[in-house]
Design a protein around this nucleic acid. Structure first.
Length: 753
DNA sequence: CAGCGTGCACTTTTT
DNA sequence: GTGCACGCTG
């Protein structure tokens, strides 16, 4: 195949040599190691546009997959400015969105009802609780959350219950619960997030005509944030790629921060083995030129990440100047830290830096409180990311539950959510009766309710509820989606209920907003891109994948419900007002700001204490820190506090090891000078030293974090953390043999080693 | 059946 | 410190 000549169009203008190489690679697979701020989205979208412009691909043959809806939208938007061709027909979306699309088209082959519902995490949790109740499983050894996590992990690894290895009794029980859960989902016609992936994978793996169809269709697969793929997503890609499709994967192993939810950065190491073949050689390209940050910031980030051992290797550079030094501040307490931040932010405002260009980052959400408090008192506007989202609000969930019942009445989660909301006299008693009937007859709650098997007052209340749903269904049949949504929130009594409630205005507003959301959804579907499900048809060349029935356009209501589950909506209304941005480091990934404050840089917090036991924990924490540093364009502040209220208790922390991993000459300390002890920075003040009995005896040894110690029973180790003072003082020691232990200094016999 | 009180837990999170 | 979950009482 003769590679077409690159086009002399503006498409390729202003690309650096590496970007240009990546964009114009001849047919084959490519792994693009794209550092932070190296223009990876640009490369990805320009690659697609180039493939289209040179006729190597048609829109129909392109599949591009991302992790978040935001990234998918961004890709679509940029692509539409880069190519005159219609983006219609391309499969661009999240893994979950694309799998949903595939499963809707082949629901029979996937053994799902046409209008299958999608459970979000909260729905999944409540299903597990119902399952425990129904089977009288009230064992505290299996908390619902933990089982949910277990099931999701198993599915993410591609494992059905029969394939999970259960070594002990405990694991065996968990697998049994997993199997029960699956049966229950299947009976109710619902799938959870992980199931979308697994079902889609199994559909491809087990159905040759369908697999061949998609393999023939998609000659180009493009993957964003490849380092975040889990085992199942990787195998899904392999299945789709077959032996011929060109896979263009963009990722950064140094920004892999989602191992805790199954992301497997090792996928990058296997790429060459698994996506190469004689017809598609594998190329590796590194994008190391950074267009975001000034030199000192990059130097700091490079130095930090060099402390990780498992890396593919990459070093960011910039053609810009060194810029300002990284600034650091040691605060006596979390309150002082917040006060420092407030002061510094005021200074930035005076310099004319917009508040929306300043981010306050922290390791865990609990840390936002103190910062918010200080900002509020200072009258600085701010916005906190990561709270309740639109489609997760209770009143919206209720409205969606009515819609779900209208679409598929056997959805028991939806049934139980609204059967007595607004209250209609169907209490726990009546429901128990109903559940007994359903169980006895092997039917769903809905069928039992329809049968009239529950008599008396409860029976007539249930009949009334069934009547409401039936009425809503028949009345919305001929309506457009937004009309139907409006009708359901009205006819269900939800609107009246919240109007009557004293502080119900916000909820009423949200219900009305749901109608707008439906309107917006339909509008987007009409102009093509984001909601392809409405127009998606099984391609004509697919050899009889189903029993011959027309699988045409999916029901708009089902599509909207899928949209609500797959895209939870913005955290808050994006108010136009300029505001400081507060978020965890995780949610800052992919963003950039003029100025970044990384707060709470303390041993135990960041790196988080829980991570120290985990296999790849410390390195993942360091990658997280790397992500934090590389968010900053011009100014970077690193702060830590020596005392902090945590879980309602005052805790004492030493500065994070990450301070030591950034060369001193890059850092300007704004707080009094510090001294170094061992490998850990410790302040000279009284905070740094931990004494078992201060001033009690001259001989009382003093301990420092980072110090090597010996214990009669546990052997040798190193102090990694400390808390409490005087007779309460405790240190955490990482013992070579026995791992992490907290020891009370008053009792434990510790010797310097 | 709803309202309130006590008790526990609590890293990170998208879909 | 706060939110959530469960259980008791009116």
């Amino acid at each position: 195949m003769a590679p077409p000549l690159p086009m002399p169009t503006p498409l390729l203008a202003n690309l650096n040599p590496e970007q240009l190489e990546a964009v114009t690679l001849p047919h084959g697979s490519a792994l693009v190691l794209a550092g932070a701020g190296s223009g990876k989205t640009r490369v990805l979208t320009t690659r697609i546009a180039w493939l289209l412009a040179t006729g190597q691909a048609s829109p129909l043959s392109v599949l591009a997959v991302t992790f978040t809806n935001k990234a998918a939208r961004e890709m679509l938007l940029r692509l539409s400015t880069l190519t005159p061709m219609s983006v219609r027909g391309m499969w661009i979306g999240t893994f979950h969105g694309l799998c949903n699309r595939m499963l809707r088209a082949h629901h029979r082959d996937a053994n799902l009802p046409q209008l299958f519902g999608i459970l979000d995490t909260a729905d999944q949790l409540s299903l597990i609780k119902r399952m425990y109740k129904a089977h009288n499983l009230d064992d505290d050894r299996f908390p619902p959350k933990q089982l949910g996590w277990f099931i999701a992990s198993a599915k993410d690894a591609g494992l059905r219950p029969s394939a999970v290895e259960a070594g002990d009794e405990f694991a065996r029980r968990q697998v049994e619960h997993y199997a029960l859960y699956e049966a229950m989902c299947q009976r109710e016609g619902v799938v959870d997030f992980a199931e979308l992936l697994l079902r889609s994978y199994e559909l491809l793996a087990g159905n040759e005509p369908i697999r061949k169809h998609y393999q023939r269709r998609f000659s180009h697969l493009l993957v964003d944030e490849f380092q975040d793929t889990n085992v199942l997503q990787y195998r899904w890609l392999q299945m789709l790629a077959g032996t011929d499709a060109a896979v263009f994967a963009v990722g950064d192993d140094d920004q892999s921060i989602y191992a805790f939810r199954g992301a497997n950065a090792a996928n990058m190491q296997h790429f060459e083995r698994d996506f190469g073949s004689p017809t598609r050689p594998v190329r590796l390209i590194k994008l190391e030129q950074n267009y975001r940050s000034h030199g000192h910031i990059l130097d700091a980030a490079n130095a930090l990440i060099r402390h990780n051992r498992s890396r593919l290797g990459k070093e960011l550079w910039t053609s810009e100047g060194k810029g300002e030094p990284v600034r650091a501040f040691a605060a006596p307490s979390d309150l002082d830290e917040a006060a420092f931040v407030v002061d510094a932010v005021k200074g930035l405002t005076d310099e004319g830096i917009p508040l929306s260009e300043v981010a306050l980052l922290y390791r865990s959400n609990a840390q936002s409180r103190v910062l918010e408090h200080a900002l509020f008192n200072a009258g600085l506007p701010y916005r906190v990311y990561g709270g309740m989202r639109f489609f997760e609000r209770a009143e919206v969930k209720h409205a969606l539950a009515y819609l779900r019942l209208v679409a598929s009445p056997d959805d028991e989660g939806a049934f139980l959510r609204v059967v007595n909301f607004p209250p209609r006299g169907i209490g726990a008693r009546s429901l128990e009766q109903l559940q007994d009937v359903a169980r006895g007859r092997g039917t769903t709650l809905w069928q039992a309710a329809c049968s009239g098997a529950v008599g008396g007052k409860a029976g007539s209340s249930l009949a009334a509820f069934v009547g409401v749903i039936e009425k809503l269904r028949s009345e919305t049949l001929a309506l457009t989606l937004p009309e139907a949504v409006a009708h359901v929130i009205e006819g269900s009594g939800l609107l009246a209920h919240f109007r009557a409630e004293k502080d119900g205005e916000d909820r009423v507003d949200n219900l009305e907003e749901l109608v707008n959301a439906a309107q917006g959804f339909v509008r987007e579907a009409e102009i093509a891109s984001d909601a392809p499900m409405l127009t998606d048809r099984v391609d004509a060349d697919l050899p009889a994948p189903t029993d011959g029935q027309d699988e045409g356009a999916t029901d708009p209501l089902a599509a909207f419900l899928a949209h609500a589950a797959l895209e939870a909506g913005e955290t808050q209304e994006a108010e136009g007002k300029p505001a400081l941005q507060l978020m965890t480091v995780h949610s800052a990934k992919g963003l950039e700001f003029h100025t970044v404050f990384v707060t709470g840089l303390e041993e135990g917090l960041f790196p988080h204490e829980n991570s120290l036991n985990e296999a790849d924990g410390p390195e993942e924490e360091r990658r997280l820190m790397y992500v934090a540093l590389t968010r900053a364009r011009r100014k970077l502040y690193l702060t830590h506090a020596q005392t902090r209220m945590l879980h309602g208790q005052t805790r004492y922390h030493v500065a994070s090891r990450f301070f030591d991993e950034i060369p001193r000459e890059l850092v300007q300390w704004l707080s009094p000078q510090r001294k170094r002890f061992g490998s850990i920075d410790v302040d000279e003040s009284e905070w740094g030293a931990i004494r078992a009995a201060p001033q009690a005896t001259a001989a009382a040894p003093s301990w420092r974090v980072g110090q090597n110690v010996r214990h009669a029973k546990f052997g040798t180790g190193v102090i990694v953390d400390a808390e409490g003072r005087g007779s309460d003082a405790r240190v955490q020691v990482n013992f070579r043999e026995s791992g992490l232990k907290w020891l009370a200094l008053e009792y434990a016999k510790l010797d310097p080693a």
